[in-house]
Computed example of a mutant assay.
Amino acid sequence: MVTLKEMEWNRINELLLEIYSMDNEHEIADRFLKIIRGLIPYSQGFILMSSEENEINAENSSFINISEKMKNLYIDHFYKVDYINYIINDSSTLVFKDTEILENSLRVKSELYLGFLKPQNIEYGCGIIFIKEGNVLGVLNLFRSADLGDFSDRDIRILHLVKDHMTNIIHSLRKSSKSLGGRLSINFDELESYKLSKREKEIIQMMIQGLSNQDISDKYMISISTVKKHVYNIFTKIGINSRMQLLKIFGEQR
């Protein structure tokens, strides 16, 4: 087994601590891609999130160094012919490496390679297929050009260390949101003992509807720092430390 350095373990822990504190799928995907690059260098990459109907949810997905044209081509066509489909199962999350899915002589003749990878000077790929309870939640794909070389055993080891954490975070967010059953209004009488201000109640309403801090900032025309201060006050008054706990409270009130 590959042995990681202490510095690498620290970076992995920092990555997990940060994404566990987040509660928006797009923000998690975007931040994960940026932080993991410090551990696993790559030239291009993306995380595609899927919907409950197993359709690509482009709004919650994130892309690094991939043009809008190529992004749309992948979503509309190449995702369906990607050779990762050969290994997707309905049991559990898995880590993959392109050069281990297909022999290179076959891989370089594939539609994905000729139409999507080669035009972007991509030679190698690896990633994670996030699967929970028989559902594909999303796919992480990291790419490298030929000059960077193929992904190493160390790189794959790091993906194995984070795969279940990412899967559980995505699954928990969706489960918490689903438990609200589309509830759009809250009876705040049950929370009067927490002495929430009018604005704090409004922000709770926005948070349970899935709006990010940036969305709330835009809606109320207040700064991000002000939103964060309100969120901190809400969490302190209620005695929680994450949006997932907030969603659980309202889910249990139904």
Results as ranks from 00 to 15, higher is better:
Ser177Val: 10
Arg144Thr: 07
Phe96Tyr: 15
Asp147Cys: 04
Gly251Phe: 11
Lys80Tyr: 15
Cys126Met: 05
Ile204Phe: 06
Ile249Cys: 01
Arg254Lys: 15
Glu55Tyr: 11
Gln205Met: 07
Glu8Pro: 12
Ser67Asp: 07
Gly210Ile: 07
Ile186Cys: 02
Asn24Val: 12
Lys198Asn: 13
Glu14Asn: 13
Tyr20Trp: 08
Leu211Asp: 01
Thr93Asn: 10
Glu55Gln: 13
Glu111Tyr: 10
Lys228Trp: 03
Glu14Ser: 14
Thr3His: 12
Ser110Trp: 09
Lys5Ala: 13
Ser152Val: 14
Tyr113Glu: 02
Ile40Leu: 10
Leu159Met: 13
Ser62Cys: 08
Leu148Arg: 06
Leu102Pro: 03
Tyr42Asp: 01
Ser225Asn: 11
Lys69Gly: 01
Asp90Ile: 10
Ile158Ser: 01
Gly38Ser: 04
His77Ala: 00
Glu53Cys: 03
Asp90Thr: 12
His171Ala: 15
Pro119Met: 06
Lys5Arg: 14
Ser223Ile: 04
Asp218Pro: 01
Ile170Leu: 15
Leu33Ser: 07
Pro41Arg: 07
Thr167Leu: 06
Tyr124Ile: 09
Glu190Phe: 13
Ser197Ala: 04
Lys237His: 07
Ser51Asp: 15
Ser50Val: 05
Asp82Met: 09
Phe235Asp: 01
Glu25Met: 14
Glu27Gly: 02
Pro119Leu: 10
Leu191Thr: 05
Ile222Pro: 01
Gly125Thr: 08
Tyr42Trp: 02
Gly134Arg: 08
Ile240Gln: 02
Tyr74Val: 07
Arg107Glu: 08
Glu123Val: 05
Tyr86Phe: 15
Ile169Leu: 08
Ile208His: 07
Leu114Gly: 01
His77Ile: 06
Tyr83Lys: 04
Phe32Trp: 07
Ile216Ala: 00
Ile35Trp: 00
Thr3Gln: 14
Ala58Ser: 14
Leu173Thr: 03
Tyr74Ile: 05
Gly181Leu: 13
Lys237Val: 05
Lys97Cys: 08
Ser91Arg: 14
Asp76Val: 10
Lys163Leu: 09
Leu211Glu: 01
Asp189Asn: 14
Ile203Asn: 00
Val162Arg: 00
Lys219Val: 04
Pro41Asp: 08
Asp147His: 11
Phe78Pro: 03
Ile129Phe: 00
Gly251Met: 06
His160Ala: 09
Ile131Val: 15
Gln245Lys: 14
Gly125Arg: 02
Asn241Ala: 03
Leu148Val: 00
Tyr194Asp: 00
Asn54Arg: 09
Met22Asp: 05
Ile12Tyr: 05
Arg254Tyr: 11
Ser145Met: 10
Glu27Ile: 15
Val136Lys: 12
Ser193Met: 09
Ile224Met: 04
Ser62His: 06
Lys71Ala: 13
Ser176Asp: 08
Asn54Gly: 03
Ile156Arg: 10
Val227Arg: 00
Asn60His: 14
Ser92Thr: 12
Leu184Trp: 07
Ser110Glu: 06
Arg174Phe: 08
Lys163Asp: 09
Gly115Glu: 12
Gly38His: 04
Leu112Thr: 05
Glu202Thr: 02
Lys195Arg: 12
Asn85Gly: 13
Ser212Glu: 06
Arg107His: 10
